[in-house]
Design a protein around this nucleic acid. Structure first.
Lengths: 317, 317
DNA sequence: CTGAAAGCGCTTACAG
DNA sequence: CTGAAAGCGCTTACAG
């Protein structure tokens, strides 16, 4: 009991007693058991972050932002990777429920993640969605601006006189993929450009997905002179396809994309909409911690704006 | 008690009783509290993975390998990022000790990580070092082969007739940086090439570090015609410096490096020693789980070999 | 200022 | 086959 008071610096302890306790603690290397503590105070001090693809540099950056904000608030983040598989997501969430983490940040794998949210709601574990939203259920979400940014990207291609413009986006299952498609469609429509089905491809958010969609688009009788891709992997895959087809970028094919991966690339090449990944992570943590602190304000959507970075892949000098 | 038997399928329970329990469980959405369980069985089912730089794609890959192996064995991995700061590492490890995780995988920040190992030993938490070793203390370690691979890289440059070859490696604090330096020195010595101090640079494992060291090397009165870098960030930084100096790679400057980041790069450009990051993660987890299972065999060093990938940055067609 | 009692949600060992 | 008792390492509320 007295030890507990010293550890938590709660209540009054005589100075000499405190010293004796502290000395014994360092002597024994005593570290209080937080799992045991959590049993009675109902707080573990741990937040779970669930991301769909750890090999996409966007998510590690987001994780770093989350971690920094969590640490500042005295929380530890545990990270889970789902490889875009709903089953893995659900399994991981069951585990974190069993661990009784205080809250969850979830970048959902897709539409079925609604079940994930239902599980967490039932366990009374607060969640903040991150990067992607889930249909049919209202939940706090922190995400990037997708639609408007894609309009800007598409219009930038039009400035370069492109009129036949293709789109490669992610699975229609994923909110960001749909929003980016919407932005593309809006821009094309707005400027009276042809919006044909063969110009729009939904594929997994992978390099191979981008390559396949690229092959299809570049194999078209009337091939597009420019293509918008919805993330960095898709852009690289498209670049692969262009090379295979013997096309130069941007001379023969202009490309603009979502996401910037400048940390791990040579000289930045892609004109892109760069999402503030770290800020997304930290903002989501702040929202979650507010909920943990008893904030009962209405469900909130926080949209962080992206920055357009003009590089060379669009045809700019 | 009966519920416990059903949950753990231990002991005998009448079929009808079991059914009633199971029904109640799904009805209530009951998920057993693992923290409470751990208090009595002394096992949490959680492994901590501590990495120094989540923004370096090498570590997320390693994390994915660790996660897959852990999941296969029924463990959950929690990930911590230390940003190469020993203080962060120690703080994170204190937390995982307090959480009473079953074991730790540690990619240490440097020499001072010896204290980390001492902390964990004192708490009787098994550790496996990963990627990097720590001096002055014997511990299981799973790492890549650094010295011999660097010899091969350096000799490959010699095949291209280079004789004045520079090295940019990480902090001498970090075992991989030292081993790679050793490989470079051995190769140079073996072939009677000049080994001068001005040709060897120790810098942080960052793009900026690579750039600064590159500026220094390329500013030399007699500048090297080829440079070995000890990781992917250093290689990109050197490329930046080469561009600033108006040098073409590989025509004016040949580069070979450690680590391959093909997932997130355009067409693979760097001739490199590619470490099997995922295998390192999974192998380390297997070692750790063996220790958890009571394996008391002598401390073991597991060295995974790298693959030399010949690309264009060295001057090969 | 200090400590004995009760309880958090589990499991182990024992009794019936 | 089922359940009451004790205990894991803590904290809360109370007594002294």
């Amino acid at each position: 009991m007295t030890v507990s008071r010293v550890v938590n610096s709660s209540g009054n302890v005589r100075a000499t007693t405190r010293l004796r306790v502290e000395q014994a603690m360092t002597e024994l290397g005593y570290i209080p058991n937080r799992a045991a503590r959590s049993l009675v105070v109902n707080k573990l001090g741990v937040l779970a972050l669930v991301i769909p693809d750890i090999s996409n540099p966007f998510f590690p950056l987001l994780a770093r932002g989350a971690e920094a904000a969590a640490r500042a608030a005295g929380y530890t983040v545990i990270l889970g990777n789902t490889d875009e598989q709903f089953e893995e997501e659900l399994a991981y969430l069951r585990t974190v429920c069993a661990l009784r983490v205080d809250g969850v940040l979830l970048a959902p794998s897709g539409r079925r993640s609604r079940q994930s949210l239902e599980l967490l709601a039932r366990q009374h574990i607060p969640v903040v969605l991150i990067d992607r939203d889930v249909d049919g259920i209202a939940n706090d979400v922190v995400r990037g601006e997708s639609r408007r940014s894609t309009i800007l990207l598409t219009e930038h291609l039009m400035l370069h006189e492109h009129r036949r413009i293709g789109l490669i986006t992610g699975p229609s299952d994923v909110s960001t993929a749909r929003e980016r498609e919407r932005g593309y469609r809006d821009a094309m429509h707005e400027h009276d450009l042809e919006l044909s089905r063969e110009l729009i491809h939904h594929v997994p958010y992978t390099r191979d997905g981008g390559r396949r969609a690229g092959q299809a688009l570049l194999g078209l009788a009337e091939r597009p002179s420019a293509i918008v891709t919805a993330n960095n992997f898709l852009a690289f895959g498209l670049l692969d396809a262009a090379r295979e087809a013997g096309l130069r970028v941007p001379e023969d094919l202009a490309i603009v994309t979502f996401d910037d991966v400048e940390v791990v690339t040579d000289s930045p090449f892609f004109t892109c909409a760069a999402q503030p990944a770290e800020a997304m992570g930290s903002t989501a943590v702040e929202r979650l911690i507010a909920r943990l602190g008893g904030d009962e304000s209405p469900v909130r959507e926080t949209v962080l704006y992206t920055e357009l970075r003009i590089r060379r892949s669009c045809g700019c000098a």
